[in-house]
Design a protein around this nucleic acid. Structure first.
Lengths: 251, 251
DNA sequence: TCTTCAGGTTGATTCACATCAAGGTGAATT
DNA sequence: AATTCACCTTGATGTGAATCAACCTGAAGA
């Protein structure tokens, strides 16, 4: 089972590497990543400013906190985590980024990245130089609108997380994360009920403000309740409604 | 003491009401609110799209969650809180907004406000219709850049709060909020060490993921440690360095 | 003046999660 | 096949903040 999914990931990655010069027009993520009502000419212009470099290996950084900000990034394959390092050296994971999602926008305000981003597994990335994006946005109202919306979306997501951290129990937090990942998979036409977690328990705990031990116990509990089947990083949602009830959010 | 500060607030407000047709060019907050390297002609254009309506009374809403999104808002005087209502009816305060700060940007992503905003005291507001802002942004690179930065700043602020909620103790959270308010006062050339909290203990607790009782106890503790003098909503910071140590952030 | 009520404080008790401690598992290395 | 190491799980115990409860304070209204 584990092996099966690994293979499919590798296959997906190979097709990307092979398609090294994919462009936005033919990228299968474009409906998620840049759902612009664009003329093909517009897409071409956008495509021209985007840089596709060689894939990031697991644990490689895309950028680090306090790096000079130059670009935002779209994930084409793989997963990344964004995190801040607190002054006493601890980490705070601020987000996970899946294919089709954009990261790096927190660097705009200071011309300095406010967080670090590293690959949780091999990842292909599209780099979008920000000054070019700004210029193009001024010419293409749809694009400008889209980026305002993307940033606004990041704000609402962060506010969701704030609420989660401040109001919800360990069970609810983990349930909410599983539902979030499930939903993001569905958006990419992957299974909403079966998937492999790209991140460790430590990262999950860190993101949700919990310790590893607590995360582990929650998974055990969910398994006992037959809401989830957990096999290491392999997750199967057995009872979506049960999970939603458990998350206690918008059910 | 309390009376003294109330008077100065009222005075500030009256000068606003009197200056009903203040414009961005002569607004004393413009260096904070819209620190654009603008030609006066640009300022005039921006000013033309901004609407100044009659002040909000205490507890009045500026907008509500799920209202149709049309504008973002700048605070000219007074304070507002933004909050979300969870499905089980509880509130999560997501931010406090002081004069010179912009709110409402979380509505852009869905054309629907993702939170509600209400006045914590009488407040004067500048309304900035978003479609006009978009059009103007396309023409004025500085303005476009500035709004990207504002939104990015909101993201980094939210991420700060996420870290605070997930990693810091009650003492640290309250200390961090006091320092934040102090800093925002300083930005407006007000005292960094003496101010009146516009929000209740309940709101503070709600924002910081704590109960009222805990907030109250933290204030008592800080007072005993002679870091703060607390007289109801009147705050005096007695030992800024002590407070910073207590916050345990960037000390 | 008395009452009411919202907002705040303080103390006693409880509880969810952290911490500490010990093992388990499986992939990579030798 | 044995060793190592990162990652995960489970159990026992401790603790910071929530909860429950009582009371205080001051403004608003009768």
């Amino acid at each position: 089972m584990t092996i099966h999914l690994k293979q499919s990931e590798d296959a997906a990655f190979k097709s990307c590497a092979h398609d090294y010069q994919v462009n936005c027009g033919n990228c299968r993520l474009n409906s998620i990543c840049l759902p612009l009502a664009l003329e093909s000419d517009d897409i071409q212009q956008l495509d021209d400013i985007i840089q596709r470099s060689k894939p990031l290996q697991k644990n490689q950084h895309l950028y680090r906190e306090s790096d000079h900000f130059q670009s935002v990034y779209a994930v084409r394959s793989g997963t990344l985590k964004a995190y801040k390092t607190t002054d006493d050296g601890r980490e705070q994971v601020t987000g996970f980024y899946f294919p089709g999602e954009i990261l790096g926008m927190d660097g705009i305000s200071n011309n300095t990245h406010a967080s670090s981003a590293k690959a949780l597994e091999t990842a292909a990335i599209c780099e979008i130089p920000f000054t070019s994006l700004e210029k193009l946005s001024a010419l293409m109202p749809n694009l400008q609108r889209h980026f305002f919306q993307l940033m606004s979306h990041e704000i609402t997501e962060d506010q969701q997380l704030i609420t989660l951290l401040s109001k919800n129990s360990a069970d609810e937090r983990v349930a909410a994360l599983m539902l979030s990942i499930s939903g993001r998979n569905a958006r990419r036409k992957l299974s909403a009920t079966q998937f492999r977690l790209p991140m460790s328990r430590v990262d999950i705990g860190n993101y949700l403000g919990l310790t590893v031990e607590t995360v582990s116990r929650v998974f055990s509990r969910m398994q006992k309740m037959e809401v989830l089947r957990v096999d290491n990083k392999e997750i199967e949602i057995l009872d979506t409604q049960g999970l939603k009830n458990m998350a206690n959010l918008g059910g």
